[in-house]
Design a protein around this nucleic acid. Structure first.
Length: 423
RNA sequence: GCGGAUGUAGCUCAAUGGCAGAGCACCUGACUGUGGCUCAGGUGGUUGUGGGUUCGAGACCCAUCAUCCGCCCCA
């Protein structure tokens, strides 16, 4: 057992059952994206590390990226996120694209971190972005798409909530407390940790960062003020738009939401399950108005979010929201009576396939008992048999495995009989 | 990178330091042209790996590898 070659730590192996789940998520993602008129696109899975160095955050680049040398000696990275690739691709065609651009994508990403519940080193992520519009209403559309997805998988507002904040609002509040602009990143970090630390330790940490007691107290007031959004025109308009879009019940203002990525400039949001064991964000995103200019394009406002497949998969499973995935690979099994009947079975299967049915032929002439047992395990509902008796009369035995009833019909009537059984 | 837990049959798990077991799965038969249900029988293990303690180790000790859970960070 120890000598077996193992999968690379943290990678994902999708057996058919897990593949059904992944495809289920993909379909819901696609439906929500297309409902708002977004186009599917994709970027390279491998990029240079430089693409991320500028704006992704030090932790992500230095510690969490899969980076290695290719055979030519160049350093390449398995993409840990999509937004920098998007920014580059938009910048490259900025003159010829029709704005606003509405794009979505669902593909694999890699981050070198310790695998644990809700986190693997390889994951699939939905990214969706709206570029070219700088308005709270654009932010609202993005949040509405997220809410539409949550609703489509059966997560009600009581079960999953999208928490919203605004970096500009927070920065002006930080300014009002006399916190220097160069301390914003550290203070944001402090805010991020509040829910994870004991109050006393959190205060001590704030003082350690060089804040005064008055500033720490002021920060506590801000973070406890859930009406703070009323001071922000942006958020006031955002909530009005969310009301109009019919998703207001999914969204709550929360001044504690900051998000780690450096490129966010305005509205930020994260969705969490309200109860349950997993304290990880289902999805997260926000407005990033400077990124295009930072990668060498013309300034372009943008808003978007990302959702990993791992957390949402666990939550759907734990809430019993997954449909019964049909593990039936075919609606009909054609058994093989013996060596000489093999060709007859293949002919019959081909005939049914050309009529559009999914048909499996047992690949070798083993005991019929074994073949029927196989059909049962695969949850195939109809089994066809051509034995010597049937062949002599140009007939086929059609068995309904759900009821156990079997009829023998003329070969030209098989299609009709099978179709009737399928309904 | 740090901390905790767990590694026994294909799977889920038992086994006071004293003969390695059960359920499920698999195979065979009852039923040689037909699944599910039942019954009878059977295959399957260097107990993750390498050392050590002991008359004797699945169990105790050390190391190592792997997995899971948490911290950091984050989708």
């Amino acid at each position: 057992m120890a000598s077996k070659i193992q999968s690379v730590k943290g990678t994902r192996e999708f057996y058919p059952e897990q593949m059904s789940l992944r495809n289920f998520i993909y379909e819901k993602v696609r439906a929500a994206s297309q409902a708002f008129g977004y186009q599917e696109w994709e970027a390279p899975f491998i990029e240079t590390i430089d693409l991320y160095a500028a704006k992704s955050g030090e932790e992500l680049v230095k510690k969490q990226s899969f980076t290695f040398q290719d055979r030519g000696g160049d350093f390449v990275t398995l993409r840990p996120e999509l937004t920098p690739s998007l920014a580059r691709m938009i910048a490259a065609k900025q003159g010829e694209l029709t704005f606003p651009v509405r794009w979505w994508s669902f593909g694999p990403f890699w981050r070198y971190e310790q695998p644990q519940k809700g986190r693997s080193r390889e994951f699939f992520q939905w990214n969706i972005d709206l570029l070219g519009v700088d308005s709270p209403e654009a932010d609202a559309e993005m949040i509405a798409i997220a809410a539409t997805f949550l609703r489509s998988v059966g997560l009600k507002p009581q079960a999953a909530t999208i928490f919203v904040n605004n970096r500009r609002l927070m920065n002006s509040e930080f300014d009002a407390l006399g916190i220097a602009p160069e301390k914003r990143i550290e203070v944001s970090n402090l805010v991020d940790r509040r829910s994870k630390m004991e109050p006393a330790k959190w205060e001590a940490y704030g003082l350690e960062l060089g804040l005064t007691q008055t500033q720490v107290d002021g920060l506590k007031n801000i973070l406890g003020d859930f009406d703070l959004w009323k001071k922000s025109d942006e958020l006031t308009r955002l909530f009005a738009a969310l009301e109009a879009l019919g998703v207001r019940d999914y969204v709550k203002f929360d001044p504690n939401i900051m998000r780690g990525l450096l490129y966010y400039t305005g509205t930020v949001f994260e969705a969490f399950e309200t109860s349950g064991s997993l304290k990880r964000a289902i999805l997260g995103g926000g407005r990033y108005d400077n990124l295009l200019a930072d990668v060498g394009g013309q300034p372009l406002p943008a808003v978007g979010f990302a959702m990993g497949d791992v957390v949402v998969g666990i939550i759907l499973q734990e809430n019993g929201l997954l449909p019964e995935f049909a593990l039936t690979p075919a609606s009909v099994l054609v058994t093989v009576f013996n060596e000489t009947m093999l060709i007859k079975s293949f002919e019959l299967a081909a005939q049914l396939r050309s009529a559009g049915l999914d048909v499996m032929v047992y690949p070798e002439p083993v005991k019929l008992q074994k073949q029927f047992k196989f059909a049962d395990k695969m949850k195939i509902k109809i089994a066809l048999t051509v034995g010597p008796d049937e062949a002599a009369n140009d007939e086929v035995a059609v068995k309904n495995l759900a009821t156990g009833e079997q009829v023998t019909v003329k070969r030209e009537a098989v299609l009709e009989v099978v179709k009737k059984l399928m309904n």
